[in-house]
């Protein structure tokens, strides 16, 4: 264990990634104690004499937005929502993707073929278009107004990549001597999957999770940008970008703040994923 930890720290990319991710997570978790209310407009005090956003100052570090709300509070709280959505969606996508991947890898060619053709079918749709369609449809259901439509959409468009990668690894493991031996000893498919295959795909899954997480952040931002994310007045990075886009000249901090937040988080998770992959390569 100690050797592994030391090894990760030896990799600069993983360290930087870890620090970025850790910082973003820490801010998101502590948001309610760090910043004020991010959703209530402050028309009287939060806007300039002309009724426009205020630039960064000692009271509002990142300035205010078009409704006089503190941009720093919105970025930090927005991170909370964006990261929560991405976490839930990544977990669900990993569970589904790993389950399907392992099942396909272990099962016979017919089930494998059926599952993988279905994966191909989902992959054949442009992910963002599919996400927009799903998010728009789910908003018509009783779930509108919660985070559920966004999370479900993200899961449905992202489990396929995981399933494909895991299936490749699982089918290799299924032909390994350990699995053959277990079969010969009469182990049930369930036992083989949980005892022999899942531990073998675990490291791939973790590296995949970090990449998927970064993608989730981007897709969530894109959905929010086109108005299909969590409903206002909730602050999410994508929606903040959307709301700030027209102010690129009169209040550029409104796109810089959420833009940099997305950039930092996505880079952080990608670096971390790289580090984790590199570790796997060495093992």
């Amino acid at each position: 264990m100690l050797r592994r930890v030391t090894w990760i720290f030896a990799r600069r990319a993983a360290v930087v990634g870890g620090i970025l991710v850790g910082g973003v997570l820490l801010l998101a978790v502590l948001a309610p104690w760090l910043v004020g209310d991010p959703t209530t407009p402050h028309i009287d005090h939060g806007l300039s004499a002309l009724g426009g956003p205020l630039p960064p100052s000692s009271t509002a570090w990142l300035g205010t937005d078009d409704l006089g709300r503190d941009e720093w509070a919105r970025v930090v709280t927005g991170g909370r929502i964006s990261l929560l959505v991405a976490t839930l969606a990544t977990l669900a996508a990993m569970v589904i993707g790993t389950g399907v991947g392992v099942a396909a890898g272990l099962a016979g060619p017919r089930i494998d073929g059926a599952l993988m053709r279905f994966v191909d079918l989902v992959l054949a749709f442009p992910a963002l278009l599919l996400a927009i369609l799903l998010a728009a449809l789910l908003r018509e259901t009783g779930l509108a107004g919660s985070l559920a439509p966004v999370v479900i959409t993200l899961v449905l468009v992202s489990w396929t990549t995981t399933a494909r990668v895991i299936r490749t690894r699982a089918s290799a493991l299924a032909r390994s001597e350990a699995v053959l031996a277990a079969r010969a000893l009469g182990a049930t498919p369930w036992r083989i999957a949980t005892r022999h295959v899942l531990p073998g795909v675990g490291d791939v899954a973790i590296a995949l999770a970090a990449v998927t997480f970064a993608q989730m952040l981007l897709v969530e931002a894109a959905l929010s940008y086109v108005g299909l994310g969590p409903p206002p007045p909730a602050a999410t990075w994508g929606r903040m970008l959307y709301e700030g886009r027209a102010y690129y000249r009169s209040a550029p901090w409104l796109i810089a703040a959420p833009g940099v937040a997305i950039l930092v988080s996505v880079i952080g998770f990608n670096l971390l994923a790289d580090g984790l992959r590199a570790r796997r390569g060495r093992r």
């Binding site: 910082g23 960064p56 570090w61 990142l62 690129y248 000249r249 550029p252 901090w253 796109i255 810089a256 703040a257 833009g259 940099v260 937040a261 950039l263 930092v264």
Partner: peptide, 18 residues
């Protein structure tokens, strides 16, 4: 993060005022 934001702001202002 603050520094990155400041830099992006400065760049945008520079482009916008041309």
């Amino acid at each position: 993060m603050m520094r990155g934001g400041g830099l992006a702001c400065a760049l945008l202002i520079a482009c916008g005022s041309a």
